[in-house]
Design a protein around this nucleic acid. Structure first.
Lengths: 342, 342
DNA sequence: GACGAATGATGAAACGTTACATTGACCCGG
DNA sequence: CCGGGTCAATGTAACGTTTCATCATTCGTC
């Protein structure tokens, strides 16, 4: 006798099987001992009524939602989509669902989303804050009642984190440019208070230092990861009295802006200017000429982040925070050439 | 006096403000009438205790989770990411969170995810089934307790749907190829039981019919949308005795496979073969030569889907299902040329 | 055949909210 | 001065589970 109104609850199942709700619950979670004949009676009732446990009620009681929040800047960036995809697979396999949200890189939205995922009682969170973590932010994160894993960030340092070795790859890229004879090498990246920007600049300086050369500070621009910033900075540099002969685009989706600035100015790659991008992409690979990039495995990043998170969720609460640094390589393509003799 | 164990509940707030939980609740949901001085007492307690409502408990009681499920084949496909992004924004603005999951185009996973989102009590679902909707599937969907919006699908027909006019754009593409003198035009797409495959083939046939020409059925391949299928079909066609002089890649992420098959065979575009893709992408735009495509607005698709869903969630349950057909255009690029004289 | 130990099933109390029926206080008109 | 009508706040019953203490039955042992 199917109930006509409302969904089927465990109570209906118990009634149909002629047992108590408690027993029905024990069957459903196949717990402890329950007589085989009763078990099958309950299972048949479940089948007959097409019963599905109400996850909300379960979450309420078990105090675990099997939900993981993920705050990224923009799902539309292929590299981030790859990250999400890999993390999703790992979490999904462990029975967790992924709630994603785009922060658009805005502090206010990040805060709102963190609050939202807190209210949601999500069991964990993957977070790539776009704002430097000041004390207020740190407090907000500390108040989040579940484990947090950061990606491509290293603050707050008490959270687990997965990041790529930007310093290493940009060091290699810069060295290669120096070897080719470049001296005026510009690096465009985000706020140096954020890990990937700081690291890229660190690698850049390290290469100069090793070569015994001084860095021209006017060529180091840490104002923003976005394509628009890339365009702005590249444009102004290229228009200057002593324009750079090589340009490192240090943002995961900055390259389109930089390329546009170069095109607008009528320059050609690599004859007029050498270019290095950050993060491999169809754009970099298929561009004419193909653009050299620092590359790391985004899927591996996502997997690792998910695994770290699952470990914490699984109860490992008081081992020290783990900061995984994944290798990044420098992939040379046709976008590099010696500087033009002038 | 901050509780040291467990989260702060509305009970703590009520206690701290010296009112009943009912009153506290009324303040929180600023409902009905509540004396200003009491309201501010409660608000100050909330502030002091840093209280956040438990969304799980709210969902339980209100019977609404503010969660929307989204099942797509693969978030990693830029076009789908754009869809998700746009839908996300619309839903987010209305206070809903988006739970996404990748079906990998596998029926079993689709079913499992639909069940999961049902158990989750999600308030709605965005769904692009990759499997033709047979009676069993239709029953599954009918049993899902919340509104469903399909994208690029038209079945089951009782669900709202948003799709692109593939028939129109592929008709134009085919016509253009016929005008250029092509007669052996192959079309590679998915299962013709699925809307976008059926529509593309329909447009293709329509163009031939208008031109008074017969379709060579051996050139119509409706075996799968994936890049691997594209590679397989393109390879076998190109290796045949009478290979096509033009090729329509009728799947949103099939193009890489098709291009690879052409490259492997050592053919050049457009001299040896003309190519049309489905859905614009960086690959199509930046390829040498750029690939012509049928193009539609993925963001608009996502927005529309979200809006349709929100309307249903908002209570409009018994207006007839809405099937929105968004325009698709044919974008001609350098991948087209007259067939080589043989 | 009685007793304790297992084994299985039950009932009710949570979980944190919201909604609804109730109560209490106060005012106003007759 | 009483009755009815507002307005505000309270107390409590849900929502659908799980869990835990409790109770009932069975079984083996002496």
């Amino acid at each position: 006798m199917r109930k006509t109104v409302g969904r089927i609850t465990i109570k209906d199942v118990a009634e149909a099987a002629g047992v108590s709700v408690g027993t029905a619950s024990r069957v459903i979670n196949n717990k402890a001992t329950v007589r085989p004949e009763i078990r099958s009676a309950v299972l048949s009732a479940i089948d007959r009524l097409d019963y599905q446990p109400n996850a909300v009620a379960q979450s309420m009681r078990r105090r675990s939602t099997q939900l993981v929040g993920c705050i990224i800047r923009e799902i539309n960036i292929p590299a981030l989509a790859a990250f999400v995809r890999a993390a999703h697979d790992e979490l999904d396999q462990a029975g967790y669902s992924l709630v994603i949200s785009n922060s658009e890189g805005r502090r206010a939205r990040e805060e709102e989303l963190i609050h939202r995922f807190g209210r949601l009682q999500s069991d964990g969170m993957l977070l790539g804050p776009y704002t430097p973590v000041d004390p207020a932010y740190e407090k907000l994160l500390r108040g989040f009642g579940a484990p947090i894993v950061l990606f491509d960030r290293n603050e707050p340092e008490w959270a687990d984190a997965v990041a790529a070795d930007h310093a290493g790859s940009i060091d290699r890229a810069t060295s290669r440019l120096l070897d080719l004879g470049h001296r005026r090498i510009a690096i465009l990246t985000g706020n140096p208070l954020l890990f990937p920007a700081a690291e890229r600049i660190r690698g850049y300086r390290r290469a100069f230092q090793r070569a015994g050369l001084a860095v021209d500070e006017s060529l180091v621009r840490g104002t923003g990861f976005l394509a628009a910033e890339g365009f702005r900075n590249a444009s102004s540099l290229l228009a200057s009295a002593a324009p750079p002969t090589a340009l490192i685009s240090g943002g995961i989706d900055m390259l389109p802006g930089v390329l546009r600035a170069i095109r607008v100015r009528g320059l050609s790659i690599p004859d007029d200017i050498s270019v290095v991008g950050s993060g491999d992409s169809e754009l970099a690979e298929l561009h004419t000429p193909p653009i050299s990039v620092e590359r790391w495995d985004m899927a591996e990043t996502g997997r690792t982040a998910a695994l770290l998170l699952l470990r914490r969720i699984g109860g490992e609460r008081d081992t020290p925070p783990e900061h995984v640094l994944l290798p990044a390589e420098f992939v040379e393509r046709a976008s590099l050439a010696p500087p033009r003799q002038s």
